[in-house]
Design a protein around this nucleic acid. Structure first.
Lengths: 200, 200
DNA sequence: GTTAAAACCGAACGTTCGTGCTAATATATT
DNA sequence: AATATATTAGCACGAACGTTCGGTTTTAAC
């Protein structure tokens, strides 16, 4: 790997950490430069605007998310086990790797009313992420774990809401029971849409 | 009402609008002054720091929320009807009055990793808000609408998650089905915890 | 080893940020 | 109407913001 690429990697790693803690908008070139130990202009020249830096950071986060949550879950058998694994990995990712909370949640909330490239990109990435979950749900239907008439989109909404709710309960409110709530709710959702045994 | 108080009202009204759109941190004294048509220092002298301005804005939002969502719902009969009304009013508040989305959601996400007075205050207000919902749920249990063994805190979690999920699906992703999802999910949650008829 | 390119730095730019002053004006009290 | 108080404006400050530019150092290619 060339020198340029590995400094970019260093920068993005640090940038994602800051973004996770303080949000994508609060990410400043100067502060970021200080935290990686290089000059403002030197860092700036890697990305040619703050906007593209922000976009790259979200790409970096998405790539990390795919590598740590989506891809490893594919080793588990299709259907509920794989979906369940995705949940576990998402929790682990959110708790252990992202020191300041899921960067997507912050970015979504921050940019829902700021038109521009950053918003469009965040929207695109998040749609892809939800798509991954919906695909896992669809497979659960096809494998016969969930009722054939299950509304995949609606199920995705419920599972996604549960994740966000957990995130806020756990992060801001610091409620210990958040994790139990999350697991219990997930199980209930799956149970409510389980395949009817006599249909098999 | 004295002149000072009504200018404060004007300022806070405009500040809440900006906060709803761009977040509490992006709220700047200069920008706010421009939007209400007065000088930066003139506005500043009303609050003696940005921090207290932010706190006052959240208080203003909380007061508005109580007046538009919590209090009117009390007219409806205790239990599920009142809880349902709260949901409807919350949706209406979030959609019609808050042009840029629920200011609490933004504030929570923005300040979950920024220690200080603002964070503490937001946390306090949000806890009170969740408390209002939990009380309505508790009443639903006492009225016999929900099962006596219902875990009120857990039910609150599910309902709160549903609200946040709707908010994101509707705001950022712009999904039309968000509202239907929300209503369907709410009904399912209530149904799952309904009082067992033979217990009555 | 020479050379072209890439990476990095330091300084400066025009703005905007939050926050103090001082002085002028409007409001409220007597 | 006179006076005291509350409200607003003007100006300036130091700091941080994103960005540009000229020059130096480091890397990569031949």
């Amino acid at each position: 790997m060339s020198k340029g690429l590995e400094t970019k990697e260093t920068i993005l790693k640090s940038a994602l950490e800051l973004t996770s803690k303080f949000g994508l908008e609060s990410l400043s070139i100067g502060g970021l430069a200080k935290s990686v130990g290089m000059s403002k202009s030197g860092l700036f020249s890697h990305f040619k605007s703050k906007e593209t830096l922000q976009v790259r950071v979200m790409d970096y986060a998405a790539e990390k998310f795919t590598r740590r949550v989506i891809k490893p879950a594919i080793k588990d058998p299709r259907g509920i086990p794989r979906l369940r694994k995705m949940m576990d990995l998402w929790l682990e990712w959110s708790e252990n790797y992202m020191v300041g909370g899921c960067p997507f949640v912050s970015a979504i909330v921050e940019y829902d009313d700021r038109p521009g490239k950053v918003r469009d990109h965040v929207l695109h990435l998040q749609s892809k992420m939800i798509g991954s979950f919906e695909r896992a749900i669809q497979l659960s239907v096809e494998e016969g774990h969930l009722h054939a008439k299950s509304d995949v989109q609606y199920l995705g909404y419920k599972i996604y809401s549960n994740m966000i709710g957990y995130h806020i309960y756990s992060r801001l409110l610091g409620r210990q029971e958040a994790r139990d709530n999350f697991n219990k709710h997930f199980d209930e959702i799956v149970f409510a849409h389980r395949a009817n045994l006599e249909d098999l």
